[in-house]
């Protein structure tokens, strides 16, 4: 409002000469917060209508009976708790996500260090090559693994046969099948850790290493006392982030085993899909998928704390 006075001293704006109503509209549209709100409006409608609303709707759905005609409270959850398959899925989801994330983080740290050791000129090429698994659409690359692990034509078993090794039932024996789903996940996800860690490694000031070298620190001591503390935040965020993505993964298990043999490799996402879409029990499927929520929530809180802390440091 205070803006109008000096402006009037100079010359009337076009809006002011063409009527009071239009003038106030014009002023409203010139206002920062109005423009800002209008700019953010499409985002808010997408986030509200297609993410927040469906998430709440999922909770409502999970409280209905199979035909979605009757409200049955926590009936679906009570039913799930009595099913052995459900507990097997909980266990398998946790094993799958935790093992895969830990291995991904390890492979990521090791490869990031190896690439960082190279002369600066070659780093880009190696990074590009190691990133390939992460670029290929996951369902299609898993199809490649599926073919590599084929029961009769497995190329790995062909190699083993050459040295008279055993014939491994990759996808038909539960523990081997579990191993394979984790293997593919590590293969796919490790490059993401690699690029995050590589970027973080580059941001550690060189002087710290020089000072440590003068003090006679070994490579391992440098890693333990400089690299790790400096990268702690990035490592934490990447791990938590990956935990969410891995926990919610659908592609790998669907393509590789479809949950088999005998439901032993099902995780939350694939079992929810199985129940909700394939068997047509949407409420039960929704209840299963909602069990991902606590893990997501806890990880999200910690990620947010990391992001905030980083914001303060800058």
């Amino acid at each position: 409002m205070s803006e109008t006075i000096p402006r009037r001293l100079v010359t009337p704006t076009p809006a002011e000469t063409s009527g009071a109503l239009k003038g106030s509209l014009y002023r409203l549209s010139r206002r920062r917060s109005t423009t800002a709100f209008l700019f953010a409006l499409p985002l808010l409608s997408v986030v509200g209508g297609l993410i927040v609303y469906p998430a709440l709707y999922a909770i409502y759905l999970s409280l209905l009976n199979r035909t979605q005609t009757k409200f049955i409270g926590f009936g679906n959850y009570a039913f799930l708790f009595t099913r052995d398959t459900f507990w097997a899925v909980v266990e398998q989801s946790c094993i799958f996500a935790l093992t895969a994330v830990i291995l991904k983080a390890l492979v990521g740290i090791v490869t990031a260090h190896l690439v960082n050791n190279l002369p600066a000129k070659g780093q880009r090429k190696w990074r590009g090559m190691l990133l390939i698994p992460w670029v290929i659409p996951l369902s299609l690359s898993t199809l490649g693994w599926f073919w590599l692990l084929d029961p009769t034509y497995s190329a790995f078993n062909w190699l083993f046969a050459q040295i008279a090794g055993p014939r491994i039932p990759w996808l038909s024996e539960p523990n081997w099948a579990r191993f394979c789903t984790i293997l593919v996940n590590v293969w796919y996800g490790a490059p993401f850790f690699l690029i995050m860690y590589l970027a973080a490694l580059k941001s550690v000031p060189e002087q710290l290493y020089e000072a440590a070298a003068i003090d006679g620190a070994s490579a391992w001591q440098k890693f333990l006392h400089i690299t790790l503390p400096m990268m702690r935040n990035v490592i934490a965020i990447t791990v938590l982030f990956s935990l969410i993505v891995t926990f919610a993964n659908y592609d790998i298990v669907r393509v590789l085993t479809s949950g088999g043999p005998r439901n032993t490799t099902h995780i939350f996402a694939t079992w929810a899909f199985q129940l909700g879409i394939a068997s047509g029990d949407i409420p039960l499927g929704a209840s299963v998928s909602l069990f991902m929520f606590p893990i997501l929530g806890v990880s999200a809180i910690f990620i947010l704390r990391g992001v905030r802390r980083r914001g303060r440091e800058v």
Binding site: L50, P54, F273, G276, I282, M292, L296
Partner: peptide, 11 residues
């Protein structure tokens, strides 16, 4: 952070 494998049923 809300994954597609949680949203596909309501959607």
């Amino acid at each position: 952070l809300v994954p597609d494998s949680l949203l596909f049923l309501p959607l």
